[in-house]
């Protein structure tokens, strides 16, 4: 089953300095029928004004992944990590038994756009940790390139869950095939452009929750597209 969720149907939170489009129940958006998809609990498409951000706050028992689409984010935590993550980089926090962090847009002029995702970990009470990884943008072309995996690598952040996050850029007229293992789920998000997923159209910022589909083909008949795909339990 491929269930498409239109971009414009997402809730919109506008705090002036922050415009957030959550795909699942979050903050002021309350929908008990839309609290997650498998281990994915939060998928926020956030736009943060220059110089603004989130003050110090705690997290626990979540794997938090931020993919930077535009601009940069500065992170600081009680573990001693102070780091700026930019486009082409991925930030992963294992909140585990507790981490305090603050994050903001360090630019004085450029807006920050990030996708922030929260996943339930494989077990509770893990030791908290933080990581930034960098992927090679050239490897995204007409491929699904893993940027977060259970074991991590030089180009992928590690995550304490049996799941993988991919990014891919399809050129016009190209296809990508993906085989889904039985019993697992796929979450698909179109960052730029529009695509066909097994013939089902998704526009820019649309998402799809996919289950019981063994073979998924992503295609872009007319124009290039940029997608994020999560394979998760």
């Amino acid at each position: 089953m491929i269930k498409v969720y239109a971009a414009e149907d997402r809730h919109r939170t506008d705090l002036g300095w922050l415009v957030s489009r959550p795909s699942f129940q979050f903050g002021a958006y309350v929908d008990p029928d839309n609290t997650g998809f498998g281990v994915l609990r939060v998928f926020n498409d956030d736009f943060v004004a220059p110089g603004k951000g989130f003050g110090a706050h705690p997290h626990s028992d979540m794997e938090i992944v931020s993919v930077i689409l535009k601009g940069a984010i500065r992170h600081e935590d009680n573990l001693g990590n102070i780091e700026i993550t930019r486009v082409g980089e991925v930030q992963r926090i294992t909140a585990g038994s507790g981490v305090i962090h603050a994050e903001y847009n360090p630019s004085e002029t450029e807006e920050l756009n990030l996708l922030q995702m929260w996943f339930m970990p494989r077990e509770r009470g893990l030791a908290p940790s933080y990581e930034t990884s960098r992927y090679d943008p050239a490897k995204l072309t007409n491929a699904l390139h893993p940027i977060v995996t259970p074991t991590g690598s030089e180009e992928a952040a590690s995550i304490q869950q049996d799941m993988t996050i991919y990014l891919g850029r399809l050129e016009a007229g190209r296809e990508i095939a993906y085989r889904q293992e039985s019993g697992r789920r796929l979450f698909l998000f179109v960052i730029e452009g529009s695509i066909q997923a097994n013939g089902v159209r998704l526009g820019e910022r649309d998402s799809a929750r996919i289950s019981d589909v063994a073979d998924l083909t992503l295609s872009t008949p007319e124009a290039p597209a940029f997608v994020l795909l999560i394979d998760l339990p």
Binding site: G53, G55, A56, E76, N78, S97, G98, A102, Y104
Partner: peptide, 13 residues
């Protein structure tokens, strides 16, 4: 609660 963390928000960022 199993543990706790004390922090001063003003010292971040």
């Amino acid at each position: 609660a199993a543990s706790r963390i004390e922090y001063i928000p003003d010292t971040y960022l």
